[in-house]
Write a protein that binds this DNA or RNA. Structure first.
Lengths: 362, 362
DNA sequence: TTGTAGGCGTTATCAT
DNA sequence: ATGATAACGCCTACAA
């Protein structure tokens, strides 16, 4: 919506008088524990029935007469009663919540659209079962220990794992625990966690071949962390396509690391005419470094990324990249987990297809 | 790190043989409930002591002889025992976790660095007390209802709230509940939730004056949601500086909305020579729209943003903007909440300072 | 259709 | 220093 001054008196008038900045103020707060916590017994007393009846109404209301149900619902409405999670969970063994645990800093967690896309997919699947998705970022060992404890203590019914190094001890610990978990990307062989992944190796090979087909003969690469399957496999795919690597620089999938790595590559292999970055974020960083070095993309140097996250179309030139269905990956992870929780059987892992997307950078 | 082919045989050799893509495989999984859940009694039996002793060891180990403690710790280590959260929480009334609840889609949640910076600040403060931060995004009413239930059911000890419209019914519901919560930004007057904020109005006024000082005489604005205090106040500040608005377009703080709004502004006020966007993300979107329209920034049109999030330095030209201390805001929110949980007293709200940062766009 | 009794796994209280 | 016992608030039986 847009309002020109002339055209939109209404909007302007509505705003008048409500836009003054207020100073901080504080009303009166009940404070935690000020009001005694409401229990089933309280609501039952108000409704004039037994706890059991209230419980029934809350959990579906079956086998309750319409009249008493109405009474009880009134009481619930009036008191704002919500069943205490811990008490309920203790007996039902369910929390109705699922954790999305990413082994990254809060900053990277909230900055890389890859996680957003996955979370969106997972969220939509979980919402169908009214499961609450809670996200956890854990970058340090202390963080990971805390998160691991959190999961194993039973705060959630299961976990979705992303951006973990393939043999992380906490991953192993989780696999040994009874917490159902599904990973994005493959763990080490010795760790039995079902996963959803793409064939990173062939996908990387294909996009590098695209670079070759476009005329590149000296293609360098910026890798992801080699402790993660995706990092290793994408490097392997690059090698499959180019044979002997011209130059290899290591990043951590982040934009900043991509920029640094590109600067290094330019120094060590100034004659390169193509770069495959193992993530769009790193490719975006590479673009900045190339611009600073006065290299035109794609004319002097062609650049390819990986992910097809929203970054790919936000940067100029827009990135040629490997599309992996991020939201679908999240959805499938959630799907496997929910099935697992329902059926009791650990699910089979899944491989999803990728495709090469040609845009401006190559 | 970078490895030229010649220089880094080691790295290459290390990789050889481990990079083959594996097909999906599944080991044997215990599955949920396959192994009987471990309890205090089990550990106690193994250690040959009472549950109480094990409990003591877990919770600090005071009043336990060194010998028995060692025995018990062995048993815990050996079994991988972790106390069941629900049972413990039922009696202690503590969960040792805090929710960061943002009223946005998963996508926006994970895409706007503003939230990342806040979360980082909050996380660092909470980590000091070993509190787990869990993040929740709720864009729809269904989502918000679920999140509200989650909070009121006692899954967490308290909540950090961000990006809520000032009079959201769920906000009100939360304020009426016994869940301690601290907001980023001011709620409606009638809603008593302590908050951490900046003076959006004077900050916006100052950055618009900067535009004026730079020579702009026809400054339009792209607002945030007017249902949020920050959106309202930043618009008010803009008006304070310019008097009669040239043109006003409305966005939702997101990049895409900024691009759309800028396109509208160009259509309705083609002679504008300055734009104040109420967020860096929208300013970034505006930059794209201006580029497409062939307007040079800052030569033809000067652009100012708000937040000084990482976006401000990622786009070209880099954004002149209002710096608000996002991480500090998160930290203070966490601080207030932790104090509240400890002291029982609802905290006083806090205003943090801002400053105008001049970069390339204005 | 409704109510009563018991137990989920832990910690707090009180003995010893 | 250690152990027995009673809550915590809810739900699953079973009984009425």
């Amino acid at each position: 919506m847009l309002h020109l001054r002339r055209k939109c008196r209404t909007a302007t008038r509505i705003l008048a008088g409500v836009t003054r900045s207020d100073r901080p103020h504080n009303g009166t707060f009940a404070g935690p524990g000020a009001r005694k916590a409401l229990t089933l017994a309280d609501v039952a007393a108000i409704a004039g029935v037994s706890q059991m009846t209230v419980s029934r109404v809350i959990n579906g209301g079956r086998d309750v007469s319409a009249a008493t149900r109405a009474t009880v619902e009134d009481a619930i409405e009036q008191t704002g009663y919500v069943a205490h999670h811990a008490a309920r969970s203790l007996v039902t063994r369910r929390t109705n919540s699922i954790a999305f645990v990413v082994s990254e800093t809060q900053d990277r967690f909230f900055h890389d659209p890859v996680f957003g896309a996955m979370a969106m997919g997972a969220h939509s699947r979980l919402a169908a079962d009214n499961l609450q998705l809670v996200s956890i970022a854990c970058a340090t060992d202390t963080d990971r220990r805390r998160a691991s404890q959190y999961l194993r203590a039973g705060h959630v019914d299961g976990a979705l794992l992303a951006s973990w190094r393939r043999d992380d001890p906490f991953l192993r610990q989780l696999a040994d625990s009874r917490v159902p978990a599904v990973m994005a990307g493959r763990p080490a062989r010795s760790i039995s966690i079902p996963y959803v992944d793409v064939n990173n190796r062939t996908a990387a090979r294909d996009v590098v071949r695209q670079l070759i087909d476009a005329g590149c003969s000296r293609i360098a690469t910026i890798t992801g962390p080699l402790e993660m399957s995706s990092g290793r496999d994408r490097l392997a795919g690059y090698k499959d396509a180019v044979g002997e690597p011209i130059a290899v620089a290591h990043g951590d999938f982040s934009r900043g690391s991509g920029q640094r790595a590109m600067a290094e590559l330019l120094e060590c292999a100034p004659d390169l005419d193509g770069v495959f970055a193992a993530s769009d974020a790193m490719a975006a960083g590479a673009l900045v470094a190339l611009e600073r070095a006065g290299r035109a993309v794609p004319d002097d140097v062609r650049v390819a990324g990986f992910d097809d996250s929203s970054i790919a179309t936000e940067v100029r030139p827009m990135l040629t990249t490997v599309r992996q269905p991020l939201a679908e990956i999240g959805r499938r992870m959630a799907d496997l987990l929910v099935d697992w929780l329902g059926g009791g059987e650990p699910p089979k892992s899944v491989l999803l297809p990728t495709s090469v997307i040609r845009r401006e950078s190559a």
